[in-house]
Amino acid sequence: MIRLGSTNALFFRANLALSMVSVALQTVLLVTVWRAVYSGHGQVAGINEADAVSYAVIAMLLWHIALPWQLSSIPDRVREGTVATDLIRPIGVVGQSLLQAVGATVGAIPGVMVGLAVAFAFGGLEPPASTGALGGFLLTAALGWSIAAMLNIAVSMVAFWTTDTRGPFYIYRAVASFASGALIPLWFMPTWLRPLLDALPFGLQVFAPLQLWHGQEPIGRLWAVLATQLAWLAAAAAIVALVSWRALRKVVINGG
């Protein structure tokens, strides 16, 4: 199933080449835009230009690798009716979707490498503040990825109740990409918006890991971030478990 996911991403060589070009182009654009936006400003919200540029690049790459922003294959399977057999397979529909997400991430790695190389060449990459910061970043980014993957699956499961999943997914994607800090660092958000953003799990996927990278202390330090991430992961897993249990019953009832 991992192979299936990465094959989907890798199989079409034109697509692979294009996605690498795409990441490279977006990296250049990001670096240029943030430098231009900063021109004439020393520090904004306590952040200098180099940090903002580096943040933007890494956030985009995290976004690219961890949040493919695609629904899992659940909606397709529900529409084609193959989900009934998937649900009774040992590995289960959730396991399959997770493995597919892993595969898609593996398939995104070449693009990320290109992005890092381009950003480095343009001098747009700041190294992590310390070895500890790097470790914290990797740990929290990995957990953030897991939360994102779980939430993706949870949203995909809307397919059990409505035939068109694009609408709900658009809403989810819009909220997630904005609130995660992938588009704009949460530093720049107006203060009145911060409590709301902190209450959502999305900031833990991009913003918190990057704060650690830049040697900033996220609210409650590393351990609090990890604890919150684990709590969210458990919550998301619980939602998925509950929904798939309900869905299973629904499918069984539909099937007579």
Partner: peptide, 19 residues
């Protein structure tokens, strides 16, 4: 045939653009 999706689609697009 899928009119139940109408509002959710429109809201989805609104949310996307609002982002």
């Amino acid at each position: 045939e899928h009119k139940a999706n109408f509002f959710i689609s429109v809201i989805g697009a609104l949310a996307f653009n609002a982002g």
